[in-house]
Nucleic acid binder design. Structure first.
Length: 551
RNA sequence: GCCUCCGUAGCUCAGCUGGAUAGAGCGACAGACUUCUAAUCUGUUGGCCGCAGGUUCGAAUCCUGCCGGGGGCGCCA
């Protein structure tokens, strides 16, 4: 029995009550009701506030409504008892057999337990990281690498067709600065004032010189162009490799340059003009974003004839829509939040619906702490902290988990000393240890040859019930993580469930001890262990964190 | 000045979109190892949910205004 199934049972009971005429619901019977796991044990296995919600509409006191419903539920299949509490809550206890049967269902479903078709038929474009190829990936981008990739896995698990996309800004002034910086260092000159510093610039310049030994004999403009094209490609490769090592692989690496070269920008501008959303002023072309909720109108073609930064995004958005994506999600750092209004307005200017066709997710900043002090500089990058700094300090698993376990709208401080620890203070180890412990039990069971017969009603211990209800929650946790775009819910769920498992392990012996003969209870618990391991394996995979068999 | 995110236990944070006595972990203190992995478990300690109003049967959660902190407000990218 999962909360969803219980919700269905309650809906059936409500339907029966209205059919009989015992209650009248002007708006009809809801398709699902809120079922929650109460914090207090005395409140039963599950509780619902449906009587409180519907009593007013039905025109009767909440407790009377709850009473009628309780009477119905008490005879429903799988329910041991339903009683009225407080102002009109219904506290429900589930039949042990109905609850225990879930263990077998999970094992039968295997890795698909928790999946759904909630996003069936949705083509979702997830754009994240999209760091400029002018240096290593900074820490802000890494947050999205972890969160965005996890979200992608969760969307796929809930039935969506997901494309992960990385937008390379390989066009414009920043790239020019990058190229000038490379050229300067190659010539032994100091970096330009507005250029890039850091060891990696020198490294890349060396690579370019090795590949093109005569490059410095060319005129400066031509030499800079060589440094630009070769340097950017080296940076691309390095970024892709870093992400791959972080277990994030993009389906599409989209180059901004293509938009300008293919005339996509002009087409996007034409389209907006046709829709009456542009005008000329002061020699520049403006987009009427204020009309669609932005603070003011924005320049899209500057008076020098060049496209403003947003022109690339206009064309890029149109391109995504033309490729058939109904939902385009873009994940940006908090330092870009001022850009959201513009993007939404742009979306509306194309005749689309902001928030539906285009959704912008904002992630707050990430700070790394060592011995309580914030890290400010990366040796290699010269400025800021990079993905490698994080991964070198705590590894990929801890990095991904640490970044994915918080809501994106809070600033996070990652204490490197804590996340490097191999102890229970470190949440990722707590969760991974649960998985390893489960694996260990199953290994020992194989040696002992415990039978696979299963009587679900034997799983009647308090800790078994707690664990089963935790496992039953998994599908709706995944569903809400997808719906709210909040992968951290999966991480927190795993931590809670690990706690339930460890308590079960402490209270309930799974395998026969010493010369003890294997009994049905051992088989039942072993199935529960296998079901639990399945959920941990799936949950960790959704976060892109490994599920170790031994630790 | 305007926009935006945050403010919950000593610390780090949850709080299932309005429900019952606000929860975890860490820390501190006291316990449990002839263990199926003690990287675990049990107990104790600890809260004007930033402040003040409002909405209603009911608010940490929704609305308004303050206070404090982070991040933004270019014909830069």
């Amino acid at each position: 029995m999962t909360p969803e199934q219980l919700s269905d049972t309650i809906v059936d009971a409500l339907t029966a009550l209205t059919d009989e005429g015992a209650v009248t619901l002007p708006d009809g019977v809801p398709t699902q009701v809120v079922v929650e796991r109460p914090k207090v044990r005395e409140h039963g296995d599950y509780a619902t506030n449906v009587a409180l919600q519907l009593a007013k509409k039905a025109g009767m006191p909440p407790r009377d409504f709850a009473g009628l419903l309780a009477e119905r539920l008490n005879t429903a299949e799988g329910i041991a008892s339903a009683e009225i509490a407080g102002p009109g809550f219904l506290n429900i206890r589930v039949d042990a057999g109905a609850q225990g049967a879930l263990a077998a269902q999970i094992v039968a479903a295997g890795a698909s337990y928790g999946s759904s078709d909630a996003f069936e038929g949705e083509k979702i474009n997830l754009e994240f990281v999209s760091a400029n190829p002018t240096g290593p990936i900074h820490i802000g981008g890494v947050r999205w690498a972890a969160v965005g990739d996890a979200l992608g896995r969760i969307f796929t698990f809930t039935g969506a067709e997901v494309t992960r996309e990385y937008y390379f800004n390989d066009h414009g002034a920043q790239i020019d600065r990058f190229a000038r910086s490379l050229l300067a260092v190659a010539k032994g000159e100091p970096a330009p004032d507005d250029g890039y510093g850091g060891q990696y610039i020198a490294d890349i310049a060396q690579h370019v010189l090795a590949e093109k030994p005569n490059v410095l004999e060319l005129p400066d403009d031509d030499a800079q162009e060589v440094f630009r094209s070769v340097g950017v490609n080296l940076m691309f490769d390095e970024i892709k490799k870093s992400l791959h090592d972080f277990r994030v692989d993009f389906d599409v690496y989209f180059h901004e340059n293509n938009l300008h070269e293919s005339g996509a920008v002009s087409r996007a501008v034409e389209r907006l003009t046709e829709m009456g959303n542009t005008y000329e002023q002061d020699g520049a072309l403006w987009l009427r974003t204020e009309k669609y909720g932005d603070d003011k109108d924005r320049v899209i073609i500057k008076s020098d004839g060049k496209g403003a930064y947003i022109s690339g995004d206009l064309a890029y958005y149109l391109d995504k829509r033309e490729r058939g994506f109904d939902r385009c999600l873009i994940m940006l750092g908090a330092d870009h939040h001022g850009y959201v209004g513009r993007l939404h307005a742009m979306c509306a200017a194309f005749g689309d619906t902001p928030g539906v066709n285009l959704e912008v997710l904002i992630g707050q900043m990430v700070n790394l702490l060592r011995e309580g002090q914030p890290l400010r500089m990366s040796k290699r990058a010269g400025t800021g902290i990079t993905m490698e700094d994080l991964v070198d300090a705590i590894g990929v698993d801890a990095s991904r988990y640490a970044l994915a376990r918080y809501t994106s709208d809070t600033t996070i401080d990652i204490d490197l000393d804590l996340w490097a620890k191999q102890s229970s203070d470190n949440p990722v180890f707590y969760v991974q240890y649960a998985h390893a412990r489960l694996a260990s039990i199953l290994r020992n069971a194989k040696d002992l040859g415990v039978a696979a017969d299963f009587d679900p009603s034997l799983l009647s211990h308090e800790k078994e019930g707690d664990l089963l209800r935790a496992l039953a929650d998994f599908p709706r946790v995944v569903a809400s993580a997808a719906q709210l775009r909040e992968p951290h819910r999966v991480a927190r769920y795993l931590e809670d469930t690990a706690s339930s498992f460890h308590k079960f392990y402490d209270a309930c012996r799974v395998l026969p001890q010493g010369d003890e003969e294997p009994a049905p209870i051992h088989a039942a618990r072993l199935l529960l262990v296998e079901a639990t391991k399945t959920v941990f394996g799936t949950g960790l995979t959704l976060l892109g964190v490994s599920a170790p068999e031994r630790m």
